[in-house]
Design a binder for these strands. Sequence first.
DNA 1: ACAAAAGTGTTTAGATTACACCCATGA
DNA 2: TCATGGGTGTAATCTAAACACTTTTGT
Lengths: 227, 227
Amino acid sequence: MTELYKGHPKHLLAVDCVIFGYKDEELKLLLYPRSFEPVKGKWSLMGGFVQENESCEEAAARVLYETTGLENIFLEQVSAFSHPEREPQVRVVSVVYYSLIRIQDQDHELVSAHGAKWWPLTRLPELIFDHSNMVRKALGRLQQKAGYSLAGIELLPERFTLLQLRKLYEAIYQREFDAGNFRKKILSLELLHKTSEKNYTESRKGAFYYTVEPGLTEVETERIVKF
Amino acid sequence: MTELYKGHPKHLLAVDCVIFGYKDEELKLLLYPRSFEPVKGKWSLMGGFVQENESCEEAAARVLYETTGLENIFLEQVSAFSHPEREPQVRVVSVVYYSLIRIQDQDHELVSAHGAKWWPLTRLPELIFDHSNMVRKALGRLQQKAGYSLAGIELLPERFTLLQLRKLYEAIYQREFDAGNFRKKILSLELLHKTSEKNYTESRKGAFYYTVEPGLTEVETERIVKF
DNA sequence: ACAAAAGTGTTTAGATTACACCCATGA
DNA sequence: TCATGGGTGTAATCTAAACACTTTTGT
């Protein structure tokens, strides 16, 4: 039966990772400069080729690990990009993932060893090939995801204040939210756990730290939220 | 520079099509029986291999054309499936699309030449490999899409009554909608054009036929609808 | 005292939902 | 005349959104 598979072309298969981070009340993207022609010097998503024995998701996790040193990262497939001429000279089909990482957790040396740099999402440099498209689509997915889950929290430290969470959502959706309404909506989901400690660095009064309600599975953090 | 691409494995790349139809107030799926081992006799999605000179989307459109005779079909990517052992014996990475077709428009001879059969979505036979997963994910995407667009209309004839549209939505979401409320919500979108003709086959009184408001692009048919 | 964030409460507008009700008509 | 879907109207409920107001505390 395997001869039915013969005669069909084989393709180079890559993954590209849209790596989101969050710092200074801004969404950031981890990019690295392409070091060879064509389009040498232009900025690029982190990518790599899918090996024989790994799935695309595993390849993306590997790329993430190799470039940031991080494991067990939130990772979600965006789409396959497969236009025959999406890269010049060589045909590569690329499966795009986006991931959410805590910038403060990254392996600095490893990241800088790749010449990588965190760019503010709103002021990106020119990207190679169809990578801008990939980013746009990934952001759309992130916005969608954040609308019915607390996945965005993967960008924040383990504990965070509601101000920090609101600023994160403002960065994700590129718009402002009313502080009082945001607080009530988020708390009404009953997915957050109020700790007994306060953060005093951002206000005189001090804001309680929250964590994700312990014991919640990913599915359980999903509620319809209309942001 | 192309030697940078050397040494990386190449993969068989396939597309699988989740082909939705609608008939007798039910969502249907077009499946065909696998005619060779392994898992001979089990039912399968329509699939095909991606050629050198085509994108995955083009390959999916080609598969659709080859099996149903239809062109210019609504087609949307679901996801890439790439687990190394998702098919026994041979590693194939598959990009899944779902499509919405009007069953009455299909080329009957062509479809039956493949031994294909329309199955009610709620009573599917056992499917090969990970195809059940693909179907589940595709249905999720269709439900999502139908929630903010009128894409589902691709499953109905050019003109349709509001009863037919409601029954379609009930089939997509597997739940009932209040007739009056559904009517008001749909019409409030101002995306439908009321024709002057009536359908008398489903009610004594006769229900006006509607069409999609002419001149609307796909984007313009998108509104937030909470179904 | 003031500013700035924390946190609570209120009011309004709009959407959702359930459901009543009349219309038209073939059997 | 009855059943059935077509089509409209309304009242109760829920949610989103705007915004007022009080608390806390370092400067």
